[in-house]
């Protein structure tokens, strides 16, 4: 699987079969062949206006499509596992 972070906002994206990028790992293209993977990585690096520092990582094919096998990529694909501090409307002072 080829992945990168977008230049615009740094979001994790994955290479689609048509050379475009998708934010969903399950929709991306799992590449079986090592040489094909290298070629896809080279092509991805040419898209450097859109993405930063592409690299490859291992996936397994699950019922919904490709799935990451390590914790780092699982978290990277699905977002932080911690609650983000919620902004709350500030109470207005009573009249």
């Amino acid at each position: 699987m080829i992945t990168a972070n977008t230049t615009d906002d740094g979001a994790a994206v994955y290479l689609h079969q048509d050379g475009s990028w998708t934010p969903r790992l399950s929709e991306a293209h799992a590449i079986a062949d090592e040489a094909d993977c290298e070629a896809a990585l080279k092509a991805a690096r040419r898209q450097e206006r859109h993405v930063c520092d592409p690299y490859s990582f291992r996936v397994v094919l699950g019922p919904e499509g490709p799935e990451a096998t390590n914790t780092r990529e699982q978290i990277r694909g699905s977002g932080p596992t911690t609650p983000l501090r919620q902004s709350a409307a500030r109470p207005q002072p009573s009249a």
Partner: peptide, 28 residues
């Protein structure tokens, strides 16, 4: 210049780091 493609990420990275801008897992 980074956004219009005039400079590459390799050229931009040291510049952004000098301004405290890192790339993390999900975002800058």
């Amino acid at each position: 210049r980074r956004l219009d493609g005039s400079i590459t990420e390799d050229e931009f990275k040291p510049l952004r780091l000098q301004n405290g801008l890192y790339m993390q897992l999900h975002a800058y």
